[in-house]
């Protein structure tokens, strides 16, 4: 009898705790729009558009490569409780569509931030460029598409506008504020684009060599750089000895003095190539995610891109104006 009483009591306590927890959560939710994003650029843009009027969070834990991410039950609850979910594509976040299948699409607004962007194939791999393997992407689009669309700043503007549309639909009351914030952000992106165009206009080298996976294709294309990476888009693939040697030959023949590596990832292969060819390594940020320290410092997308520009100008020996 006593145990029964104990059980009943504890159950009641739990229920009360649960109810008060819920009401508190709802109070918060009712005042602010909850927005969940997948990748860092989406998070940063949404954060700027939201200002003080919405709560924006990012799913990826700091430092993690998007492909190695696996959503936890909590993440799925967070998404289904949010008013707005923003992602880019199945190329970058294959797990996003699986999560969405399990949520109620009537209450949740989903934004495909990459809508309207023309995706490019990533095919500037070393050793693949002259050998007639160029058409390997045609049979399987998903495998060959480059998902790093935000690295072309005109695409970044499209992404900002897509996110804005989502915000306006989800929270019409604050629409004017969101529009103002987005316009300001787009202006900063346009300015960034202008600085890139100017900063990279008079460089000694136009060859942009990257000792890792294909990442910076959009950026290189926009500013007329010739981009070559050690391996293709898939982060699981491993280079062959022949590709390594081809990269070394390319570094030597192009006469560059710096080889680029991507932040967050292990620079082992890049360092090997650089050591072999007698050049130095410079880091660029792919911006899909941030390291823990950068998150704490509150670094934004535009600042990352400014760092990238400085390193690109150093690596390509550009005259700064």
């Amino acid at each position: 009898m006593r145990t029964l009483l104990l059980i009943v009591l504890s159950l009641t306590a739990m229920a009360v705790a649960g109810l008060t927890g819920c009401t508190r959560g709802e109070q918060q939710a009712s005042t602010k729009l909850q927005v969940v994003t997948t990748l860092f650029p989406l998070f940063d843009f949404a954060r700027i558009i939201a200002g003080e009027r919405a709560e924006v969070t990012m799913l990826l834990p700091p430092g993690m490569e998007p492909h190695s991410f696996e959503p936890k039950p909590n993440d799925i609850i967070r998404i289904s409780k949010s008013g707005l979910f923003i992602y880019t594509s199945r190329y970058m976040e294959p797990w996003a569509e699986t999560i969405l299948k399990g949520t109620d699409r009537r209450s949740l607004r989903v934004v495909d931030a990459g809508q309207g962007v023309s995706y490019l194939k990533g095919s500037a791999e070393v050793g693949h460029d002259h050998a007639g393997h160029g058409d390997h992407g045609t049979d399987d689009h998903a495998a060959g598409m480059d998902p790093h669309i935000w690295l072309d700043f005109s695409n970044a503007v499209v992404i900002v506008n897509n996110i804005l549309t989502g915000f306006v639909a989800a929270d019409p009351a604050n629409a004017p504020l969101y529009r103002d914030n987005a316009a300001a952000l787009n202006a900063r992106l346009a300015d960034l684009d202008r600085r890139y165009r100017e900063g990279l206009s008079s460089c000694a080298s136009r060859t942009f060599l990257h000792g890792g996976h294909y990442t910076f294709g959009y950026l290189a294309r926009r500013y007329g750089l010739e981009y070559r990476s050690l391996s293709g888009i898939s982060s699981e693939s491993e280079p062959s000895a022949a590709k390594m040697a081809a990269m070394v030959r390319q570094i030597r023949s192009s006469g560059v003095r710096y080889l680029f590596a991507e932040e967050l990832l292990s620079p082992r292969l890049t360092e090997t190539l650089a050591g072999e060819a007698g050049v130095e390594v410079l880091k660029l940020h792919g911006a899909h995610n941030l390291g823990k320290d950068d998150v704490q410092r509150g670094i934004g997308f535009i600042e990352l891109m400014e760092q990238n520009l400085a390193n690109l100008q150093k690596g390509l020996a550009c005259r700064s104006k």
Binding site: P61, P62, G63, M64, E65, S68, E238, P239, A241, M244, L264, L265, S266, R268, L269, E271, T272, G275, G291, K292, D293, D294, V295
Partner: peptide, 19 residues
């Protein structure tokens, strides 16, 4: 709460990148 780098990419070496 995450790291400054991607754990998996630091975990495994590659026979072609031996110093």
């Amino acid at each position: 709460g995450g790291y400054n780098v991607d754990l998996l990419s630091y975990l495994f070496g590659n026979i072609l990148s031996i110093t």
